[in-house]
């Protein structure tokens, strides 16, 4: 249904030193998304308003914000999703340090990505070596292609309780990097062992499976079910399998039990 008239955009203005929500009136157009309304404010009323964006089509993951308290891409959120009489509140991602207005410092995500060992292709067949390509069946890559849809909007990181409320960024890499790790671990041709780092450095055990990350993912990646839980299982298999634990304990030279 087309809505006419103005919409009140209640935008966060300010820096880490302080700020407040400011109301702006914007004329509605059919099909308008939140990012359009923010741009209208920027072009006409507040030239110095800070906002990140690029593709405006849900492909780059730049324009993440909290719209009426919910983590969303501004470019994919239509105004007519909300009650026409109510103001639309746009706030920066809460999990990350504020830079200015709607922009936060998300550099931490890039730093943790750097610490993840890249793909290490395992032994290749003669045919694969000749062609310089991997032979992998589509059904064997379907599950990692799901993870590779990630556009790095960091909405999952924003909503993760471990990062958002506890701010345990030194203990847990967060859902985005779990997906990166799951992609590498489940790659049919990978031969690296990341299980120790998934357990310790990346801290997969910190996730308590509330699945909030899955709920906010604009790419509809089943982060928890298909990514994090299988990683937890791999860690359990390696470190907490009772038979393996017993065998390890009885291994000559092991002094832990004595």
């Amino acid at each position: 249904m087309a809505q006419r008239g103005n919409v009140t955009m209640r935008l966060w203005r300010g820096t880490a030193a302080g700020g407040q929500f400011v109301d702006y009136q914007v004329a509605r157009e059919e099909g308008m998304v939140v990012l359009d309304a923010v741009h209208a404010v920027q072009a006409q009323q507040a030239n110095d308003l800070s906002v990140r964006w690029n593709c405006k089509a849900g492909k780059c993951g730049s324009c993440s914000a909290e719209v009426n308290g919910y983590p969303r891409l501004m470019c994919m959120t239509r105004l007519d999703l909300f009650d026409p009489g109510e103001p639309i509140t746009v706030a920066p991602l809460k999990t990350f340090p504020l830079v200015k207005d709607l922009v936060t410092n998300v550099r931490w995500n890039f730093e943790s990505a750097k610490r993840i060992p890249p793909l290490k292709p395992g032994p290749l067949t003669a045919e694969e070596q000749r062609k310089g390509e991997f032979q992998m069946m589509q059904q064997d890559v379907d599950r990692i292609q799901e993870f590779r849809k990630c556009i790095e909007c960091f909405l999952c990181q924003d909503t993760c309780h471990v990062l958002r409320d506890a701010q345990d960024t030194d203990k847990f890499f967060g859902p985005r990097q779990m997906i990166r790790l799951a992609n590498l671990e489940m790659h049919p041709k990978d031969s690296a062992d990341r299980i120790p780092m998934i357990k310790k450095e990346a801290g997969v055990g910190m996730c308590n499976i509330t699945k909030c990350c899955t709920e906010v993912c604009p790419e509809h990646i089943r982060i928890t079910d298909n990514g994090i839980i299988p990683l937890k299982e791999r860690v359990v298999d390696r470190y907490y399998d009772p038979v393996t634990m017993l065998l390890n304990a009885l291994r000559p030279g092991n002094t832990k039990l004595r």
Binding site: P118, L119, M136, I144, R148
Partner: peptide, 22 residues
């Protein structure tokens, strides 16, 4: 062709043919 295949070795996962190639 070599530039594309190199991406596969660096971790890109293209859609596959029935035989499992790019």
């Amino acid at each position: 062709p070599e530039r594309v295949r190199e991406l596969e070795r660096w971790g890109a996962v293209f859609d596959r043919t029935k035989d499992g190639w790019i």
